[in-house]
Amino acid sequence: MTTVPDDTAPDETFGLEVTTGEERDVRVQVRGDLDHETAEELLEAARAHLRSDRPPRHLHLDCARLTLCDSMGLAALLLIHRHALAAGTRLHLDNRPGMLEHLLELTGTLDHFAQAEKGGDDRPAHEDPPPHSAAGSPPPAHPG
């Protein structure tokens, strides 16, 4: 089982493109290598939205043009996921290239991100439900 398709991908310099859609949806296109040098930039961009007064309902990270994701890159994705959960935002890793899929699978984090996409309702029972009453925030919208 070899996964070397991304070896032939052309070098792309790291860059982010943020677009805000309707219904408080934010889409971030990630280009190039997500590694120890660039992870912080993505983290800051995501934090800026997740920590605002009205965090987005959905945060889409479009990974179609992602060329590499190293351990620091995955750590950044995990941290964004944690912040998204706290903000009540659903995180989507869209258009995952093979190498990212492989990394998520290997590290046992694929399910974790999949649950985030589905939203809080489908979180496993052993996780504490979000404190609805305390913060007075409305319960997450039902999917579908």
């Binding site: 750590a75 995990l78 290997l106 590290t107 046992g108 984090t109 974790h112 496993p124 052993h126 996780e127």
Partner: peptide
């Protein structure tokens, strides 16, 4: 197979 250590609650 298993989950990485130190980042996820479970």
């Amino acid at each position: 197979a298993g989950t990485l250590i130190g980042a996820l609650p479970d």
